[in-house]
């Protein structure tokens, strides 16, 4: 039986010394969490199902350093590795895959030019094109938007953001998810900007609406703070995988213990 995946995310800040993992609260106020290669090895031992590296500086100057980090990690860790942050051309996709990544995640560049997804899928296969969607709640009932009822009974929609959460696009996240599927993305990495870094639970409404609207796997991201949050994201949110950062970086929970709890809640995981 196919298992639900637990994916630690490493937000990597690159500098001359190689790279450091940092974790922010709502995309700002970054805290340092360790060396990416060492942390990857630790997660691999702890039964992580995959790893995601996000280059949060996302500048072309740092691209080479990121590729070095990817190279070193893929020599030591034999589980799938997704790399994202600033990737904006098929040439960059190729370089990242050649460095040892199995998938690339693309957000801003795909919003600017959705054909990058189809080109990438045609050249390298859908399975390595992950569409990253950063979504933020808009408490307004607007026409032509997918309205969702939030926990407090109010209604609204989800707006897609680009440039690491700095730029609103006016796009409806649920519609955009269908569009990226049509363009050839093989997976969606769906981050709730409202929940990110808060450890108060995943955005179930966002996750469920996107997951039921597409026929490709959806990775829920943002808000995972305790095992019950993961249970909800899988059961109510219909997520295929859950991504989290702080909960693992600061050793609040081991992935193994989290998976044990998920298993006790009848969620099929790899132990």
């Amino acid at each position: 039986m196919l298992t639900k995946r637990i994916i630690p995310c490493l937000d990597v800040k690159l500098g001359k010394e190689g790279g450091k993992v940092v974790k922010g609260v709502e995309f700002e106020d970054l805290k340092e969490a360790g060396n990416p290669v060492e942390l990857s090895k630790r997660y691999n031992k702890d039964l992580a199902d995959e790893l995601v590296f996000l280059d949060i500086t996302a500048s072309s100057d740092n691209r080479k350093t990121m590729l070095d980090v990817v190279k070193k990690t893929s020599e030591e860790v034999f589980i799938p590795l997704t790399v994202g942050g600033g990737i904006s051309s098929t040439e960059e996709i190729k370089k990242t895959l050649r460095a040892g990544a199995d998938k690339v995640s693309i957000n801003t560049a795909a919003v600017k030019d959705p054909n990058l997804l189809s080109k990438g899928a045609r050249l390298f296969g859908s399975q390595c094109i992950v569409s990253a969607i950063d979504a933020k709640r808009r408490y307004e009932e607007k026409e032509n938007k997918n309205l969702v009822e939030f926990e407090d009974g109010r209604k609204g929609w989800f707006e897609v953001y680009t440039y690491g959460g700095r730029e609103p696009t006016g796009k409806d996240a649920i519609k955009w998810a269908s569009e990226v599927e049509k363009k050839g993305a093989g997976e969606i990495l769906l981050t709730s900007m409202d929940k990110d870094g808060k450890k108060s639970g995943y955005d179930i409404g966002l996750t469920k609406n996107v997951s039921e609207n597409v026929n490709i796997p959806v990775i829920a991201s943002g808000g995972g703070g305790n095992p019950q949050h993961f249970v909800e994201a899988f059961k109510k949110g219909k997520a295929d995988a859950c991504l989290a950062a702080s909960i693992f970086h600061y050793k609040e929970y081991s992935i193994k213990n989290l998976k044990k709890e998920l298993k006790e809640n009848d969620i099929n995981v790899r132990i």
């Binding site: 039986m1 196919l2 298992t3 639900k4 995946r5 199902d49 859908s126 399975q127 093989g186 997976e187 026929n215 490709i216 796997p217 295929d240 995988a241 790899r270």
Partner: peptide, 13 residues
């Protein structure tokens, strides 16, 4: 078959 999500991605036994 597409009654399940495709691609089939992840750890399976």
């Amino acid at each position: 078959p597409t009654q399940k999500k495709v691609p089939h991605i992840g750890w399976n036994s």
